[in-house]
Amino acid sequence: MRDYIVKRVLRSFLVLFGLSLGVFALLSISGDPATIMLPPEAPMSEVISLRKALGFDEPVYIQYLKFLSRALRGEFGNSWQYGLPAINLVLEFFPATFQLALAALLFALVVGIPLGVVSAIREGSIIDALGLSLGVVGRAMPSFWLGIMLILVFAVNLKVLPTSGKGELRHLVLPAITLSTAFLAQIVLLVRSGMLDVLREDYIRTAQAKGLQPYTINMRHAFRNTLIPVVTMVGLTFGRLLGGSVITESVFSWPGVGRLAVQAVSARDFPLVQASVVVFALWIVLANLIVDLLYAFLDPRIRYG
């Protein structure tokens, strides 16, 4: 178990190291910051002195090490749009993104798991057809369009929910549904196919032969065994939900890091882009690590594998 944890933590660091290289490389090819920051008519001497002041006349590996040490201290410079430290802005907007992702995850699980289970138990029924269609259509639909359609129906026509913004719980409903749909579709299909596989196992037949209640068979014997892949996917997806929030937040003007990052891109506000990408990535690496450890805890085969 300890070996596994050590190995897994080391791998996370490796991913982070690769990521820092990637962000640094992107910055390097983004062009000479001195020429971006100065007006085009600035004299060459001024460009050279700014370059020196920013440390861009040093060898690449020194530049990288400096970048790394700044990044580790969370210093990405001030946002060019807001004039505030980029990292503070990102951390200020992060809770809203986290709240949205959590709500979407809960919605997907609460709706998706029962629907998947019932679809499998009543294979071929209307509910199964519904579950399957949701699984297929949910993955074929662009989430931003779904969001706009939900706004059209519930906010514009029925006027029961707000179109955008953050505030009461009502504001959370449409963004959470929008963000969760692709994931919900995956959950339904995963639980359904997992249950169908398990229901064909010999021990299920044994349980039926013993005369157990169908409910006991389905829940105690079948459903429990489909849970492990679901747990894995939840972990992997929670990171992805944060990524998907970029789009959902833009649709609903949700004040989170995703919208902040898109705006930063349009404004070419590099410090803010960097800070949001790094914070997102850190969170995702951490979420994956936690899930892997949790997974090892749940399934002894991985611990000793």
């Binding site: 910055l27 990524g243 998907g244 970029v246 882009v273």
Partner: peptide
């Protein structure tokens, strides 16, 4: 997440 990757690359 690939959206983030895309954002970072296209930003530059």
């Amino acid at each position: 997440p690939s959206v983030l990757l895309a954002i970072a690359i296209i930003a530059v």
